[in-house]
Amino acid sequence: MRPLNRVDRGLLAPGAYQTYSITQPADTLVQAACEQAECEAYARGWQSTIDESTPLGQQQATYIRQQSGRTFREQRTGTGLTVFVFEARQRCFTDHKTRPQLFAVRDGDWRGNPTGRTRQHSRAQDWVEDFGEHQLRLSDQQQKG
């Protein structure tokens, strides 16, 4: 499949180009932080309603109060339930899974990589910065003639 932004003119040798790519392996899931997973509870906060008249509810309430490490307010309902109101911007109780993104830069273009050199950025911000610096170098070279 041909990328939409492929340069087909072939004015320069493949080694004169750099290719920037972002890919996602289809069969790989990794655990992700709430913020990375765009978790609604993380962004807005959430409530957990617990029935402390049951053994499970007692265990859940004890965990929240003593071990969870989360910031919350505690309220009682008229029916005897306990409502824990959690503030936003803290990890929820869900284990989020996401597909990792691979941020790569390689020498060459669609015709090949003559040097075999490939770099992998671990953060999207680094890839974007690398791409921007490359664009500036190209612009400077074009202005110089």
Results as ranks from 00 to 15, higher is better:
residue 68 S to N: 05
residue 121 H to A: 11
residue 3 P to F: 06
residue 137 R to L: 11
residue 62 T to S: 13
residue 64 I to M: 03
residue 141 Q to F: 15
residue 8 D to Y: 13
residue 43 A to L: 15
residue 26 A to I: 10
residue 71 T to C: 08
residue 92 C to E: 05
residue 138 L to C: 14
residue 28 T to D: 00
residue 140 D to P: 03
residue 98 T to L: 12
residue 110 W to V: 11
residue 20 Y to S: 02
residue 65 R to F: 04
residue 46 W to K: 03
residue 1 M to H: 06
residue 142 Q to L: 12
residue 105 V to D: 04
residue 27 D to E: 11
residue 125 Q to K: 13
residue 109 D to A: 00
residue 122 S to Y: 13
residue 74 E to M: 09
residue 69 G to D: 04
residue 139 S to R: 12
residue 61 A to C: 01
residue 136 L to M: 13
residue 84 F to C: 02
residue 96 H to A: 03
residue 102 L to R: 13
residue 88 A to P: 08
residue 49 T to V: 14
residue 64 I to R: 01
residue 34 C to L: 03
residue 17 Y to W: 04
residue 133 E to V: 13
residue 124 A to M: 10
residue 141 Q to W: 15
residue 88 A to K: 15
residue 91 R to P: 07
residue 115 T to H: 03
residue 132 G to I: 14
residue 25 P to D: 04
residue 103 F to E: 01
residue 75 Q to V: 06
residue 113 N to A: 03
residue 61 A to H: 01
residue 85 V to E: 08
residue 140 D to C: 07
residue 118 T to S: 07
residue 125 Q to E: 15
residue 37 A to P: 11
residue 4 L to E: 05
residue 69 G to Y: 10
residue 3 P to A: 01
residue 22 I to D: 04
residue 9 R to P: 01
residue 25 P to Q: 06
residue 110 W to P: 00
residue 2 R to D: 11
residue 67 Q to I: 08
residue 37 A to L: 10
residue 31 Q to R: 13
residue 1 M to E: 12
residue 60 Q to I: 15
residue 49 T to E: 07
residue 77 T to R: 08
residue 99 R to I: 04
residue 15 G to A: 06
residue 72 F to S: 00
residue 87 E to M: 10
residue 28 T to R: 11
residue 122 S to D: 11
residue 6 R to K: 06
residue 68 S to D: 02
residue 38 E to L: 10
residue 134 H to L: 01
residue 110 W to C: 03
residue 139 S to M: 12
residue 30 V to K: 01
residue 13 A to P: 03
